[in-house]
Amino acid sequence: MEVIATIVAVVLAAPLVLMTATFAIEVIAGLRATPTARDGAIDVPETVIVMPAHDEATIIAATLTRLLPELPPTHRVLVVADNCDDDTADIAERAGAGVLRRNDPTRRGKGYALAHARDHLAAAPPAVVMVLDADGATDRESLVAMARAAATRPVQAVNLLSPDLAAAPMVQVSNFAFVIKNLIRQRGLWRLAGRVNLTGTGMAFPWPVFRDAGLATADIVEDLALGLELARRGQLPGFAADATVWSAASSAEGTLKQRTRWEGGFLATSRTRALPAIGAALRAGDLRGLWAGLSLAVPPLTLLLLLDAAGLMLLALLALAGASAWPAVLLATLLLLSLVALAVAWARVGRPFLSGAAAARLPLYILWKIPLYLGLARKRPTSWLRAGR
């Protein structure tokens, strides 16, 4: 009986140990800032910033008012008003941006909007195509850095939510989780795998890569899927660590809606692509590709913590039934290491995003997310959702 209980404990603990170890190592690797590589001797390539916009009349003017004065002389903005029922297109034109109108109710989604822009640009293509969301903000130095980096390979800038310590605690915790995903873990992935994930806004491509990319898709995490497809072709997305793109933080309701979209899409992509990527890397002896596959297998932070907590409880029960305690001890150690790494990340870069008082409510945030995961277990979101502004 004890042998059987130990075997069950090992089988239960193995995937949790692997995912938690991957998360901890990646966070630790990302704690140190990535050296920047600004080179003023390199010409800034001609760049078109494509901005997909679906019913963004309430914010598009403010976005363009911030962005247009920051444009280098080599850059211009092209707004794709996609299946809009409001006057997004007219407002964008009055603000001074180029505008494309797209109406196709049967093919909805950001991927189709990007493909529409690509078809329009094909007659006179720029050197670089950059993608910014309709609520995005950045600065001239970041635009220049992204354009230069994307002259030779696809790249992703640091994509963060604007910090707001006056926001609801659940929003602050979610914004900090965004910092872990899009800054700390991206740094770690870049160091360990030589590539990063595309995150939808602040990504840039050489024209030949953008021209040949599989954009016309309704995938709700089209950015993640696109980065994985480019990596499969050998066009590994690089990390433009000296460029930052900011998006507006949302309300608690909007945050939950957007996390539902992203996490549902991520989990679906992870289930279908992580194991094949790991297997392919093992067959090829590609250690960096192996790490990228392992990283893709790690669930979102809150879900990982929930799984570890549930796993530890089951392992404790198995230990009481006679199983070895080592699987539980190993998992608990890795979980503690992960929490320490998160605390260090908060101390170094997370304070503007998460107050100490809000951090103390992390257990409530985890409970807040449980209905989300129960909903995802029943039905994966399939539409192009945007957070409430």
Rank of each mutant, 00 (worst) to 15 (best):
E2M: 13
A5Y: 04
A5C: 08
T6L: 07
T6Y: 09
V8T: 13
A14Q: 12
E26H: 09
L31D: 00
R38S: 14
D39M: 09
D39H: 11
A41W: 05
I42Y: 01
M51Y: 04
P52A: 01
E56W: 02
I60P: 02
A62E: 15
R66D: 15
L68H: 00
P69C: 05
E70C: 09
L78M: 12
A81T: 05
D85A: 13
D86Y: 04
T88H: 05
D90F: 00
I91T: 05
A92Q: 01
E93P: 00
A97W: 03
G98K: 10
N103C: 13
T106M: 10
K110Y: 05
Y112W: 15
A122F: 09
P125T: 02
L132C: 09
D133P: 07
D133H: 07
D135A: 07
T138Q: 01
D139A: 06
V144T: 15
M146G: 02
A149K: 06
P154G: 05
V155R: 02
L160S: 03
S162F: 01
L165D: 11
P169M: 10
Q172D: 08
Q172I: 09
I180L: 15
Q186V: 11
R187P: 06
L189K: 07
L189D: 04
A193Y: 08
G200M: 05
T201W: 11
M203A: 03
F205D: 03
W207E: 01
V209A: 12
L215Y: 04
L215I: 03
T217A: 11
A218L: 08
D219V: 08
D223T: 07
L224Y: 09
G227Q: 01
A231M: 06
L236Q: 11
G238T: 07
A240K: 00
A241S: 15
D242Y: 10
W246Q: 11
W246F: 15
A252P: 10
A252W: 08
E253L: 11
E263F: 12
E263M: 13
F266P: 00
R271Q: 14
R273A: 12
P276K: 10
G279H: 06
L282K: 12
D286M: 08
L290V: 06
A297W: 11
P299S: 13
L304W: 02
L304V: 07
L304S: 14
L318K: 00
G322L: 05
A323I: 03
S324H: 04
V329W: 12
L334T: 12
L335C: 11
A341M: 04
L342S: 02
A343M: 08
P352M: 05
A360Q: 14
R361E: 14
L364H: 13
Y365W: 15
I366H: 00
I370C: 14
P371R: 08
G375E: 10
A377V: 08
R378C: 13
P381H: 05
T382Y: 02
R386W: 06
A387H: 10
G388L: 13
R389W: 11
